[in-house]
Nucleic acid binder design. Structure first.
Lengths: 197, 197
DNA sequence: TAGGCCATGTAACCGGTTACATGATTAG
DNA sequence: CTAATCATGTAACCGGTTACATGGCCTA
């Protein structure tokens, strides 16, 4: 999925300027598809107009720079629909924090605690952000996404908080000594059904 | 986080060839950091050796092509540690399925059902894969990752299955009252619709 | 006998980011 | 007075992918 399709998807829901599309794709509800910056959005929009999939209207504003408001047309919706039809690629989840966790022996417990707290703070922020998004969003067919995201994020956060001590303790190489082996996999049962919705 | 650091992280845990690193980073336990292909791994490994962070040993095999087994040294571990020390960037989660969900009105319920089943099948596969990984992995400080991933993935899957009907029903435009305009995402009202067909 | 697995590597390409240029307005 | 927000756009760069070249072995 590329910036072009992202633009079509956003313009399908509402008219927008390049500036707004960037905000939506990095901070807004569209942040879970692809994130794009100005350098990719503006050319994509120009190409889209060139190809006749969107149209553009200039809007003069008082005290603000003029804006180019794009709207999608039927041809654009058709391409979007076609892009959506092909089977979705698998989700991707990437986490630098997990990378730190995997190399826990290399860093000392203080640094791990710091990384952990930094990370949970970020997740907490995202949960909150999602709640604000949900509140601001009117009813619509795509709205289950918010509930889904919120539920998953909450679960994520909850698991981390429940296991903070264990994670921080995994840092440093001292644990590796034969004195005391951590319970590891057999002891840590994945929480089967914790409802957080 | 780039391929270079990925290679160091893997080599920190065990010796490996470029071929193995690719497998680990796309299918294995390292798939949640960055995924890399041959075209990026081999040059990275060569550079790493050039910089003196890893060493390489040729291994002749019978009936198979010879392999270059890389191992990390102290200088390499030092760079890895340094890379790990800086605060982790926020996790990213990208999903084409969610994109389809957000544009549900555009596709008919059958296609949505197909996409849903395709997606849940993928997630189910990943859950299973994670279980196999856990079983195959020996005890170690980074092992909580498996439990974490399993828990989150399970939650994800459970939510989807609990809401299948609702999600499939969100497809197609006929479902909801004709009152609804396209959802305005930031409380910003969409202006008049310009048709340039 | 076709295709997949092992195994290494290169070159062309490309989709994206970063940094820059420009400039008015408002909030701290 | 400074920084941020609004707003558009370009050019250089870069990290990564795709496709290719090579070749023996094993399985269906």
């Amino acid at each position: 999925m590329n910036v072009r399709t992202l633009c079509l998807a956003i313009l399908h829901h509402r008219e927008a300027t390049g500036y707004e599309i960037r905000k939506l794709s990095t901070e807004g509800a569209y942040a879970y598809f692809v994130d794009a910056s100005f350098g990719s959005i503006y050319p994509a929009l120009a190409k889209l107009e060139d190809d006749g999939l969107v149209s553009c209207r200039m809007e003069q504003q008082v005290g603000k720079p003029p804006r180019k408001v794009y709207s999608i047309n039927e041809k654009g919706r058709a391409e979007l629909r076609a892009n959506l039809q092909e089977p979705p690629k698998r989700d991707t989840y990437k986490s630098e924090f997990l990378m730190i966790g995997m190399c826990a022996e290399l860093i000392d417990p203080e640094d791990m605690a710091r990384a952990f707290d930094h990370h949970t703070e970020q997740v907490r922020g995202e949960v909150q952000h999602m709640e604000e998004l949900s509140a601001a969003m009117p009813d619509g067919p795509g709205n289950w996404m918010q509930a889904f995201g919120h539920s998953c994020l909450n679960h994520h956060l909850q698991w981390l908080m429940d296991n903070r001590d264990m994670i921080v303790a995994s840092a440093g190489s001292s644990k590796l000594d034969a004195t005391q082996l951590p319970p590891a996999l057999d002891g840590v049962q994945p929480a089967e059904t914790d409802e957080v919705a």
